[in-house]
Nucleic acid binder design. Structure first.
Lengths: 200, 200
DNA sequence: CCGTCGCCATACCGGTGGTATGTTCGTGGC
DNA sequence: GCCACGAACATACCACCGGTATGGCGACGG
């Protein structure tokens, strides 16, 4: 039986996470104090330390929050019923679009490797957006759509390229134009490794 | 006339920078205190604040130190007398190799965007390694070696891919193997956008 | 030989992450 | 219905660190 107190507890916890996501996005990890996070959630540091072991834990909760959101949207597309190649393209577009979210940009891509440490970040990314990209590439290869390439390193290259590209888009004055340019270049490159079975 | 004091002053300054590079590489920006940096340079925080305006300035000095080193090696190769395509390949190899330097990894690629802020980092990178990569790509296009692609975004994609790839190499158990895989994939992709003028 | 100023050390302050302790109130047993 | 218990917080406090203000010492120009 779920008690009334459990509701309250989860409510304040989620309020803390939400507050953390906002502040970390705006001012970064080092630039936001725990008092601020607690204050925005209308509690004190005591409550924060009851729910989390420390500042790092709060950050990781915010990280999970942001990543889970992206992952959900990506999974929906990648499990669709279109042809593998079109699914991948749609996923690519969705990922680039998601990268424009300032929270994902700063928390998941910029600060997470520094705050969590690279090893832990990589491990987490395997379960989130990077894992999905790798899976999508593997599917393409399995379906015979692209040449056999080392999946691990190739998806790593692709992920790195897309992340920095997305950051570029996000900060550019004309997001639409830069976004189309990037998508164009990426698709052009991908088409090069695509098996030409559909032709001839 | 360069006085004796100027020598001393520059000596302690460079000692501080060297100390900062070491500590920032080992423990990261947030994990190292100014007292530690000063102590390793056998001075006190007072000396540090005489030479630098604050912690950020110390970091930027360390950043410049690391970047200038890489830039020097890259420039030597890219201004060589080989054919454009071979020059670019040699530069690519050199850059991947340079990325394995833990200081460059952590200070210039990981922490700098967070510590300096993305905009300032990007601005600085334009004058260092990224600028050289962009120039190299532009040269290839000018020489008619590769198809005309949007230089800015393409080099951004390439830079991002290489950086994350290099991080992957640096942390892998078998650096040689992963390094060759990555180089292979990148060259394969580059060959795809290469103009086939040499054939036929 | 002396005043000056660059170079650096010492002392101190405010803020922040973390801990220890106190307080409230919902919950389950009787 | 009541009470003891513990979860869910609040409060008070400490250690450390970035930054500032001040003091001293020795080299350099006059």
């Amino acid at each position: 039986m779920r008690s009334r107190r459990d509701d309250y507890s989860e409510s304040t916890r989620s309020a803390l996470v939400e507050s953390a996501v906002r502040l970390f996005t705006e001012r970064g990890y080092a630039g936001t104090s725990l008092d601020e996070i607690a204050k925005r959630a209308r509690v004190t540091k005591g409550a924060l330390y009851h729910h989390f072991s420390g500042k790092q834990a709060v950050f990781e909760a915010a990280f999970d929050e942001v990543e889970a959101d992206i992952k959900g949207r990506l999974e929906k597309i990648l499990s669709g019923s279109q042809a593998p190649w079109e699914r991948a393209l749609a996923g690519l577009r969705e990922f680039i679009g998601s990268c424009l979210d300032p929270s994902y940009q700063r928390i998941a891509l910029q600060e997470a490797p520094v705050v969590m440490g690279w090893a832990r970040w990589r491990e987490a990314e395997d379960r989130y957006s990077f894992g999905l990209i790798k899976q999508a590439l593997q599917d393409l290869i399995d379906a015979g759509e692209v040449l056999a390439v080392p999946v691990e390193v190739t998806s790593r290259l692709l992920f790195g390229a897309l992340c920095s590209a997305a950051t570029e888009i996000a900060h550019s004055a004309d997001q639409r134009k830069v976004g189309e340019q990037i998508e164009d270049v990426v698709v052009r490159l991908l088409n090069q490794v695509r098996r030409q079975a559909t032709e001839a």
